[in-house]
Simulated scan of single mutants.
Amino acid sequence: MKILLVEDEIKLAGFIADGLMHAGHVCDHIADGNKGLETAMVNNYDLILLDLMLPALNGFEVLKNLRNFNNQTPVIILSALNDTENVIKGLDFGAIDYLKKPFDFDELLARVRAVQRRSLAHSTLKLQVSDLHIDLLSREVCRAEKPVILSNREFSLLEFLVSNSNKVITKSQILEKVWDINFDPGSNIVEVHLYQLRKKMDRGYNEELIHTVIGRGYILKGEVKKG
């Protein structure tokens, strides 16, 4: 998932962001409320982790503005304000969960997974294009019944390509969905990862799935089946 973390405690934010990325997620970090609101409105996220006691604009106001502008991205509040009144207020403002600080990181991951399961419940859990099979929950990939071992980033890249099968995807779209907002768009990191992914996905098979569309981007071609 692509996650926005709005947290002004830099050490804690670094710990959370590193843990989320290690678990296979993409995480952007913003340290104040105004910037957090702006970032959430102009980028597409699967989940927002939101502190309440933020500079510039507090978390309640961030959440209120998101919902007023019809941004329905799921929000989990992370806060030291652990009295019942604030928990109720946060949930009434539109948060789907409220985690009280200090918290165990494994508990945060479990709640993130719960959001992911709810999201996947409205979509297809298993994807198939030609002889390529992807299980989004177990993160297992097979081609022609042979397991394909991918890094977390490669899996996210493949998932994005498969979810947009037979459509041309630009480098900018890939960077927006698979990498964080601070990544240099002039970098060749997309090309490098696609090269590695193609070696694993296409080398040794008669049918190539991933193709470069010169001047436009990339496309994963094949017969789409949903499981």
Rank of each mutant, 00 (worst) to 15 (best):
M1F: 04
V192Q: 15
G59R: 02
D32Y: 06
M53R: 11
N152F: 03
F160G: 03
N43K: 08
V129A: 09
I3H: 01
L158E: 01
F103Q: 01
L12E: 03
R203F: 14
N34P: 04
T124R: 15
G222P: 06
N43Y: 12
E140N: 11
R118A: 11
N68L: 14
T39W: 00
A121Q: 14
F93M: 14
N164I: 09
T73K: 04
K200F: 04
L4Q: 03
A121C: 02
V6A: 00
E7V: 00
K167M: 09
G217W: 07
L47C: 02
N71G: 02
L157C: 04
E140F: 09
I214L: 14
S119R: 14
S119K: 15
G217K: 03
E154N: 03
M201R: 05
D97H: 05
D28C: 01
L37H: 09
F93Q: 14
P74M: 06
K167V: 07
T39D: 00
Y45S: 00
T84E: 15
K167P: 01
N166E: 05
G204E: 12
I76A: 06
L37C: 07
R203C: 11
P74Y: 06
R113T: 07
N206K: 11
G24P: 00
H133V: 14
E176C: 02
L57W: 07
L137F: 12
G19Q: 01
S151R: 12
E61R: 15
K89H: 11
S79T: 09
S130H: 06
L66I: 02
K167H: 11
I77P: 00
I16Y: 00
G186V: 01
E38V: 10
K199M: 11
R118E: 13
G94I: 03
R118P: 02
L150C: 06
T39K: 07
A17C: 03
N43M: 08
K2A: 05
L50Q: 05
I76E: 08
L66F: 03
I77G: 00
L49T: 00
E159L: 14
V129C: 10
S138K: 14
L99A: 04
R216V: 07
A95S: 13
G33N: 09
N206Q: 12
V224A: 09
V192D: 15
L99C: 01
S165V: 10
N44C: 02
R113Y: 12
V224N: 10
I77Q: 02
L66K: 00
Y218C: 04
S172L: 13
H211D: 10
I189F: 12
L54S: 07
K199P: 07
E38A: 11
Y195K: 15
Q196I: 00
A56N: 11
F60T: 06
L120K: 05
I149P: 08
I134W: 10
S163C: 13
I96M: 13
N71E: 07
P147G: 09
P55I: 06
Y98S: 05
I96A: 02
A80W: 07
V112E: 06
L108R: 00
S130R: 05
I3Q: 01
V62W: 08
L136E: 00
F155L: 10
K221N: 13
S172T: 13
M21I: 04
G59M: 08
E159F: 11
N71M: 04
L197M: 02
T84V: 14
R118H: 13
E38I: 10
R153D: 02
V112A: 02
I181F: 14
K225F: 10
H122K: 11
P55A: 10
L47I: 02
A13W: 01
